[in-house]
Each structure stands twice: as C-alpha cells, then as structure tokens.
Simulated scan of single mutants.
Amino acid sequence: MAPSTFAVAVLMLMLPASARRNKDDSFAMEALISEARDPEKDLEFWLTTCGASLGYLQRLHGVLSNTMNFDKGAALPLAFEYAKKQLDPDQLIAMYTVLRDKLRLSVEEARSRAPELLEKDASPTQLSDLYTEMTAGASWLSWLVKSPKEAQGLAMESAAAGCEPDKFKSAYQANHDKKTAAEEAIRASFDMQAYRYADDGRYYTASQFADYYKSGGDWVAKWTNSPVAQKVAEDGKAYSASQFKEFFKEGWLSKWNAATWATQRRITEPDGGVYTLDEFASYFFPESEWKWAESPVALCKECTAASHA
C-alpha cells in the first residue's frame, strides 16, 4: 500500500535539508513508511491526545538518528514510541551522553538505559554526580564499590530511586550497611518532598511509602518502579520534585509548595480511553502498575502543555 502524501511529508520534515535533497533518502524513507507502521495515524494520535508539537517529534527523531546513531529503520518507530512516553529530547541526549562518556557503558547499553532511567525520573546531572562520588577514591567508599562495574550499577540504581548525591554520601558515610544507607538516602532526598504512587493509586513520601509496604518485602524496589508524583508549575506543565529542583534551583521548594498536584493520565490502547492513575488502580488491579507503565502519556487534567513542549 502506497504511503500517503501527508505521511511522506512528515518524515521528510524530520530529515535535515541536505538529506531532503537526496532522492535516495526520499525513497528510503517512503519504504520505511510502507514497511513498518502508519506514521500518519501515530502522529495524529500523539499530537491530539498527548499534547505537543511536530517540532518536538522532529527533535526527538534527530536525537535518535544523529546523536544516538540509530539507523533510519530504528529511529522512526522509536521516535513515536518515546513520544508516547513524553521523553524530553534534551534530557535524552544528556542521559545517553552521561551513560556513554561518564559511566563508560557501551553504545548499545547506553541507548537502552537512557530512556529507561528517564522514565523513572532519574536526572542525568544527579547520575553523573553520583558516579563521581562513587569513583572519587575516598576511603569511606572502599567497602561499597570494588570495581567500576559496581559503581555503574549502584549509580544507576540510586539515580532511578531519586537519591541525591549529597544525601547518598552522608548516608553511606554513616552506615556501612548498603540497605540501610540506601533507604536513608532516599528518604532524605529533595527535602523529603519526593512522592511516588503505591498500588492503591495514592501518592506517598519515601517514608510513608516504606510504611505502606512494611510487610511487603523490598519497598525500595517498589519505590523505584512506581509512578512519580508531579505538580503543575506556573508554566502549566507538570514536573516532579527533582525536576522542580533542577529547573528552579534555589527557589524550587517554595514553588513546589505553592503548586497544585497534577492529575496524571494515560491512554489505553487500542481503544484510546484516557484514565487517571487512580482509575487505572481501580480498573486494572492487580495489573495496574504494569499497564500504567506501558501506556502512552496524556496531558494531566490541570496541564496546559506537555513538560517537554
């Protein structure tokens, strides 16, 4: 089936000007459309329901094809996939670069880990600083990490759990027990204002979350894999506590306290229904956490724009 003129135009827009003048590239992109999926349908769905612009999709595709060096066959479907999760192109570049250049992961692993960590609300800056702390050669770290490989794993694990570097350092200096130190560091980070959702659809601080799951095993693992609560800033976009701190710097806490909670929503496929996290917890329990993580992100109820727009 021949691709529509609209779909071809969209994909050609993603290419740099020099490539658009190349007839071979034009034919290659048309072939990609006919082979893989329906870009026109994907684009319409994403623009109307998820709340951003064609420019965002173009930037995301550029990051995947130019910076992360995916070939054309892989970059296009990944662009739509990452767009449905509202991954920020600048953050994707930053995370990939930290993983590849600072942590020295292979290109393949850095490609895989970057979107995974961003979905867990990990910050590229914090990941870099955590790894620096772990590889600084300080005597207090000798019991904790024995090799660069261990430091890589612990840095990514700590960043995904929302652990600030200074809280990590103080907790691990005071406790030579990894489990205790990790729990204390997570509880103390971001002025104890980081919230994540439990399986009841409600948000909790790390301390409250630990109490909620006190008889349910490893609460840190559940915390790391749970949805991150957000608030709506003055620009009408939803951010987590860590993002408030990164974007607003010194005055972040007062802005966070003044902001309203974001009612996050996701889209069920293939029917296209839009549900809040609380509704997911009610309708899809006990699979609600898995379904939420796999579902495309919609604008929050209170938002006027997507955070990456």
Rank of each mutant, 00 (worst) to 15 (best):
P270T: 06
F27I: 13
G251L: 07
S189W: 01
F6M: 14
T276I: 03
S142A: 04
S288M: 00
V63G: 07
D90V: 09
W256N: 03
R20G: 15
E40W: 12
A114Y: 03
W290A: 02
S65F: 09
Y239L: 04
P77A: 08
N175Q: 14
S282I: 00
A75Q: 02
L78D: 02
Q152E: 12
R37T: 15
Y239K: 02
K169P: 15
L15W: 14
D42K: 08
G251D: 05
L118N: 08
V228W: 10
V274A: 00
T276V: 02
T276N: 01
A306L: 14
Q264F: 08
H61G: 03
K237N: 08
S226Y: 10
G55E: 11
I33N: 09
A241T: 07
L299Y: 10
I267P: 01
T268Y: 03
S26Q: 15
Q264V: 08
K214M: 14
W46A: 12
S53C: 08
A281S: 01
I93T: 08
G272D: 06
L118M: 09
L87I: 00
L277V: 12
V98G: 11
A185E: 06
E35S: 09
K149D: 13
T5H: 05
R187W: 15
T304C: 13
L141M: 05
D278P: 10
E133F: 02
T224Y: 05
Y56Q: 13
V98F: 06
A36Y: 14
T224M: 09
H176E: 12
R21D: 13
G201W: 01
F285Y: 03
Y283A: 00
V63K: 09
L299K: 15
L141P: 06
A206N: 10
A122T: 02
V220F: 15
A75Y: 02
D38V: 09
S242W: 11
D90A: 13
A17C: 13
S139H: 07
Q243M: 11
T224R: 08
A221G: 06
S295G: 10
V145C: 00
Y275E: 04
Y275T: 00
Y197H: 07
F190H: 05
M29E: 14
S112H: 06
A52R: 13
K84M: 10
R104Y: 11
E30R: 14
G272E: 05
M134G: 03
M192H: 08
R111F: 00
G137Q: 08
A258R: 08
D88K: 03
E133N: 06
W252Y: 06
D235K: 04
Q243S: 09
H308I: 04
M192Q: 10
Y56E: 12
A262C: 12
E250A: 12
Q58G: 06
L141V: 06
T48Y: 01
N175F: 09
W46K: 07
Q173Y: 05
C50E: 03
G51A: 11
I267W: 00
T67G: 07
Q173G: 08
L54A: 14
A155K: 06
P16L: 12
R265C: 02
T132E: 07
L130W: 07
S158C: 11
W261G: 12
T132D: 05
K85W: 05
D121V: 10
